[in-house]
Design a binder for these strands. Structure first.
Lengths: 341, 341
DNA sequence: GTTGACATTTACAGCGCTATAGATTAGCGT
DNA sequence: ACGCTAATCTATAGCGCTGTAAATGTCAAC
């Protein structure tokens, strides 16, 4: 047993290979990188030394030397929330395809954690950041303007000079409501506005809901816009149960996310209402639970793959030096009909 | 030549701060690290320079110098699967508490990707790896024996010399079956063995299921051990529907994961069977969907937080130099009863 | 005053790799 | 043979930080 100072036990370095092969370090580096102008004899000799010693390049050193890390940070509120987990997967795959790896940062809905993301907490650690903010607004992000390339996901409260990709929430909500109306629904509830929600999403979706109704000549009934005390499933259940008990009637519910749609399923079941016979339920985000629930949820489906691809694309341009104004991109959405409508 | 390769535009370095403050680099470093033996005048002067220049340390350089990265890799099959997403969250939080960050590696059930994890793909990038293998067995892992500290999650096909943490699947299955029997169930089905499943988990759970039944003096009925063609919800639905159509009767189902439990809910509903009146359903993993489904799923609940904490603890010891034999740790589980039992 | 014994601060050699510039060799037309 | 270009290969200066060893200051105790 060789005695090592706590640190990485006598790791094999590039120089060791060079010495064994009797060549310069640069030549070893060249064969490691498959540089073309290396004679095949040389390549063979070096490769043999690499194999013999079991050399593997130290990525940290490489990074310091090149200034590129090959990693991007993905900052999301919670990685076990369906929507974010799915986005993380897509972004991870997309990044992988382009030779990047991702490191996931959970902000856990903490303002300070989100600020830390923007303030280059990752300095020198990642080449870029994809960030889905939950607590801080785009204005503040613009103010803290990080040095690392950044792309935002999700709603932008107002136009800012930061790259940004999202779906058109308002138009998606309109599409959802129109779909419900096509199947004859007229009294459509919105589940729900959430107390203390500082994100723009709910608002935009509500707006689309109202626009569609008005466009169809249906008068808005404020009692159909449900109110929830929080984002949990129980909050959702309470919101809808309260409405039912208060005598509010409706034949469809547009939900701000799939979780609220599950809440609707539960509350309606408890009230003895059948889905979709008595009430249609339309979720939002089209996460895996939509497929797994019984009855399977219809849901407004953002094109997550496109979201990931576009976000990564914008980021890549920034990483390659683009330094122009912030760009806003809209990716497509669809209404996926399953068993609840 | 100031003509550097497109590299990071004039970033502020430690040396810049040192020059501005008129002190040595080491002193700046000391201030950055809150080293105690720094006079407060000095600290103030240096801090002012840091603030003025907006200096932020380059983590890559720090890493190269210290040999510690402060990061651990978490390698899991897919990060959008409920169980893995939740484990990722817990491990991320646990690591964060100890000053580490995680980088998530999706192996996507690919054998080569899993081998790459073991073969130190992360060389010099992370201080340790927590790995939940899906395709390669523990024997192969032992053979490829990586240089980086490693802790395994999930079942070990056989004792190996690698740290490893899991719940006692067999005993958990027994507990689950006993709970079902206590509520009077006698014909308990197992959903399901999966064709092509090379993991040990299903097998161990099935074993526990059988042990509990035998211990209660109930004869094993092979028709109650359902067979599925795959891991998807539809595979699960088909497996259970086929059994029902074949005239197999049962009053409870122990499922190998929550997804199959949702499948059971769906198939039973389609067959007009009520849950839990006619058939009890017990899921496994106690993922968020268990709480969200209607009726809410009862589920075998591994203590994920403990799993994360123990795994991280073992890894930390390895990272600090422990080099003894592989340790196996069992963490607690519980049976969470909700509405399906 | 001096002397230790500490507390502070500094100088500088790495960490392992890449990249630039220059040295060497090879290939070829005349 | 000779000159010239192109193909290979080498030497070495960083990348930005930390750790070590040594230098300098400070202060209480003689």
């Amino acid at each position: 047993m060789a005695m090592t100072t706590g640190r990485s036990a006598g790791r094999v370095r590039l120089e060791d290979v060079a010495v064994l092969a009797g060549v310069s370090m640069k030549t070893v580096s060249n064969v490691v990188h498959n540089y073309e102008h290396v004679s095949s004899t040389m390549r063979g000799r070096v490769q043999a030394a690499i194999d013999e010693l079991g050399y593997r390049p130290n990525l940290t050193a490489r990074r310091l030397a090149t200034g590129k890390t090959g990693m991007i940070a993905l900052a999301i509120p919670e990685m076990d929330q369906f929507y974010f987990a799915e986005m993380a997967r897509h972004i991870g795959e997309e990044a992988g395809r382009h030779g990047y790896r991702i490191i996931v940062e959970q902000t856990l809905n903490d303002v300070e954690a989100e600020r830390a993301v923007i303030r280059d907490r990752e300095e020198g650690l990642v080449d870029g950041v994809i960030f889905h903010p939950a607590r801080i607004d785009t204005l503040e992000i613009a103010r803290l303007r990080p040095g690392t390339p950044l792309v935002l996901l999700g709603e932008a409260a107002r136009p800012v000079n930061t790259d940004h990709v999202m779906i058109d929430n308002t138009s998606a909500a309109r599409d959802g409501v129109e779909m419900l109306m096509r199947s004859g629904r007229r009294r459509i509830a919105f589940l729900a506005t959430v107390r203390g929600d500082i994100t723009e999403s709910t608002h935009l979706r509500l707006l689309g809901y109202q626009e569609a109704l008005l466009a169809a000549g249906i008068e808005l009934d404020p009692r159909l816009v449900l109110q929830s005390d929080g984002f949990s499933i129980d909050d959702g259940v309470r919101a809808i149960s309260a409405a039912i008990e208060a005598g509010v009637t409706f034949d469809a519910v547009l939900c701000r996310d799939d979780l609220f749609a599950l809440a609707a399923l539960r509350a309606l079941g408890q009230a003895g209402l059948r889905v979709p016979e008595d009430v249609s339920v339309l979720g939002w985000d089209d996460t895996a639970v939509a497929r797994y629930s019984t009855p399977a949820l219809s849901s407004v489906s953002p094109d997550k793959r496109a979201l990931a691809a576009v976000a990564f694309g914008l980021l890549e341009e920034r990483m390659q030096g683009y330094d122009g104004v912030g760009r806003h991109q809209i990716v497509p959405h669809a209404i996926i009909e399953r068993a609840t409508t």
